[in-house]
Design a binder for these strands. Structure first.
Lengths: 287, 287
DNA sequence: CGCGGTGATACCCGGCAGGTATGACAGGAC
DNA sequence: GTCCTGTCATACCTGCCGGGTATCACCGCG
């Protein structure tokens, strides 16, 4: 009578994202009429109008917005249930590996810490196998939510940690990375205002969920590209202390006095009950 | 091919909780054979053995345990999606009430704070209607997860806050509530060890998720009952400072020196995006 | 005024969810 | 041993509903 099926949620999320029944149906691999009917049924069953059909296109109502957000969360949760169950399935042999953990890390961040953590955990008795999944910083939350990863190393203030359990591991300051020859590179320290307003060195921009904030600086896709652009004297970047390990000879790092400190956390889904995960977190907390 | 339907999750959770196909089928309002078949299909599709069928009864495998936990979370999420969408449906008229918020509070806790919060929020321009949902302290987390409530006032260390966003509001100490005539009632302060080891006054026990921890003290169902048992000289209780407001003349409250402080938080689902909720949290933070 | 593009409707069909009847098997009472 | 009982699995049937195709109704636009 009143329990949503995941099929219905999948359909609605597709329509709400495309705002177009035809395209949504194509994405779902089905014809348009059954999709229309399914959405109508959904609206009737919920007793709520989800979409506003103007003759030209479709718009979300308030309730539609709510269902889009909540539905995505629910779909993530069911996908996570399936994935984690599948992964737990192989490890039914007692005495064998106590499961496998997937650890999501931002590519090339916290090398040092990651190495120490993996070594220390591998030395624990009865430790599980750890699969390291490199990814962009914005994907980590999604990976944890939909079960593709079990645990992640995240960095505030960039990641939000909302909805997860976490434990802080290390704190570090931030530095400005400048071309070695630049006048500012001679300074002992800088402030954020200093590096934001250099007319010949616009601040590099990183993508957030695939899109770039507006600004004069170049759009950065990866760390190598950033390093090159700095070396060429085209931009400046603000990065955590530990990033000094990948600097070139043509780079100079100057400490920033007023940049927010970067805290590395180990993060996992709040309801997790995995023994292997508990062991990894305990090991991390002892580092 | 690989996406779980909520129907399958509902079925599996029922079987995993009952550990008995017949009873689970009855609970689900269906016959046993289709249920058996559905679970077999689920196992085949996941490629994982979930249940160990010994001729006498059923047991969960490791993967089954995982699916029970994750599946419950997924079912809660879909139920929350349905409920929140339904509730958002009424408020489609712009200019009308900006939605309605359901606030879960432990019955009879934080009277004072609640009153101040409701008054302050009602005075805000454009504030939503607040429905107060009294409940036991253990139900609050479930209510938030499955969408029956949007926001709650919780009290650490009893509630866990894991998986939610929260903001601390007030901190208070705890007191021991004793019969007025008892020798300990004459003391200016007490320690936890003092009240735990009184032979004639065993510490009252509150239920946790419907069950009681073992111990000598009486099992308490509600606050009135507790008050009466204390007045009769049958038990002693440890409660937050603010509970002084409901004490009887026959009660004496003595501050505890080493009890953990009780922090009242306002708590909401981490992914919530409701304007009304944001307003309420802002109001609470200013108190 | 036709034409293209949108979502809705009408109708049909096949698969699968669900029911009933029954089987297979283990354990207990005697 | 032989019942009987309680368990889950199998066999088979049926009706519903999810999905497909064809078509309609409507609007905006050249």
């Amino acid at each position: 009578m009143d329990t949503l099926e995941t099929r219905e949620l999948r359909y609605f999320v597709a329509v709400a994202e495309e705002l177009h029944f035809g395209r949504a149906a194509e994405r779902l691999g089905m014809a348009q009429p059954p999709l229309s009917r399914a959405i109508q049924q959904l609206e009737r069953r919920l007793g709520v109008c989800l979409l506003e059909r103007n003759r030209r296109g479709v718009r979300l109502t308030g309730a539609g917005e709510v269902l889009l957000h909540e539905g995505r969360a629910a779909l993530d949760a069911t996908a996570a249930a399936a994935r984690r169950t599948r992964r737990a399935g192989g490890a039914d042999n007692p005495g064998g590996p106590r499961g496998r953990l997937v650890l999501a890390v931002k590519a090339a961040a916290s090398h040092e810490l990651l190495r120490k953590l993996l070594d220390a955990y591998a030395a624990e008795p009865g430790s599980a196998e750890i699969e390291v999944l490199p990814c962009g910083i914005c994907e980590q939350e999604e990976l944890l939510r939909d079960g593709r990863a079990d645990v992640a190393l995240m960095h505030t203030p960039w990641n939000s940690l909302a909805g997860f359990d976490s434990e802080a591991l290390t704190t570090e300051g931030q530095v400005a990375v400048l071309p070695a020859g630049h006048p500012l590179a001679a300074r002992a320290t800088l402030s954020l205002a200093d590096v934001r307003d250099v007319p010949d060195l616009p601040l590099a921009r990183w993508p957030t969920h695939g899109t770039y904030a507006p600004g004069p600086g170049p759009e950065i896709h990866n760390q190598t590209q950033l390093a090159q652009l700095i070396a060429l004297g085209r931009t400046v970047a603000v990065v955590p202390d530990s990033a000094r390990s990948w600097l070139w000879a043509e780079h100079t790092a100057v400490p920033l006095t007023d940049a927010p400190p970067v805290v590395t956390h180990i993060v996992w889904p709040a309801h997790s009950r995995s023994l292997a995960l508990a062991g990894l977190v305990r090991t991390a907390a002892r580092l």
